[in-house]
Amino acid sequence: MISVETLSYQQLAKVFDHAILKPEQTKDDVVTGCELAKKYDVKSVCVKPCDVKQASELLAGSDVLVGTVISFPHGNSPTSAKVAESLQAVEDGAIELDVVLNIGHLKSGSHDEVENELREVITKSKAKNPKVIFKIIFENAYLTKEEIATACKISERAGAEFVKTSTGFAKSGHTIEDLKLMRQNVSSHIEVKASGGIKTLDQVVAILNTGTTRCGSSSTDQILEEFKKAKGL
């Protein structure tokens, strides 16, 4: 059982992908977010595709990885556009790509099409840089439990390293029930990422106890400060 008492600061900090994804966030916000990420020594920043090059320059020499989102937030781009966006992100320095699957096509039952698209994006990007990590965003707010389970299996077969709950832009984000369902429907070597509505330390501890290993949040500093206060650090 994971608790505040059993966690070290480093263990908790490396759970976070600090999100800098709001459409109104500026280049100055990217600077502030990257400085925050370095200060708190989080796992990564997740920035808009147009900001990957800037973030890569700002975080060069640090232990903080650069991530971005692909076909965000709706997953509606054609395969060729998703591939091009992914390759550009890798070229600009992203090492983690959070790709929104085609939600409407998944719900249409076009499972082979969704899987083949993800496989093409992943394969072509890894040909450019084999170290790139893929997290597939489902947007669970729009999916049934059966569709979530199916998306898990599709993502694993396509070659992803993570399955992820949400973009943070739908009507709801992560739920503990969904995280447990996702953990149950992928192999042990596939990781689970929670996002959407993560604002408190208690939420993060509950998330970690589902077997989830990564959290996307724009409230990273508040949560880590809450942890430090609780631990007397």
Rank of each mutant, 00 (worst) to 15 (best):
V205H: 13
K228F: 04
L233M: 15
H105P: 09
Y40K: 02
I103S: 02
D221L: 14
H174S: 15
S219C: 11
K228Y: 03
V52R: 07
V15L: 08
P78H: 05
Q25D: 14
I20T: 07
V186E: 10
I2T: 07
A141M: 12
S166P: 06
K164R: 00
V64T: 03
A55P: 06
P49E: 12
K128I: 09
V90T: 06
A206L: 12
Q54D: 14
S187P: 00
K43C: 13
T175G: 08
S62C: 03
M182H: 06
N116E: 11
K48N: 14
I198R: 00
S172G: 08
Y142L: 15
V121Y: 01
V64C: 02
G33E: 02
H18R: 09
H174K: 14
E139W: 08
I2D: 06
E117Y: 04
E96A: 01
S77G: 07
E113T: 07
K153Y: 02
S195W: 03
A89S: 04
V69H: 02
V47H: 02
S155F: 02
N102K: 05
I154Q: 03
G67H: 09
V31Y: 12
E35V: 11
S71R: 05
C215N: 04
V30M: 03
S155C: 01
V31N: 12
K43G: 11
V64R: 03
K145W: 13
S3M: 00
Y142N: 15
F72R: 00
A158P: 02
Q203V: 01
F138K: 04
S188D: 15
L7W: 12
D28C: 08
I207F: 08
V4M: 02
T68W: 01
E85R: 09
K135T: 05
S218D: 05
T150C: 12
G61I: 05
I103W: 06
Q222I: 07
P23A: 14
A194V: 00
E96P: 11
L97N: 06
K27I: 13
C215F: 09
I176M: 00
G93N: 09
D29S: 04
H189C: 08
S125T: 10
T213Y: 04
G75R: 07
H18P: 07
Q203A: 12
S44I: 01
V64Y: 00
A81H: 12
I70W: 05
C50I: 11
K38M: 10
I2S: 07
I136Q: 12
D63R: 10
T123Q: 13
K107Y: 10
H174V: 15
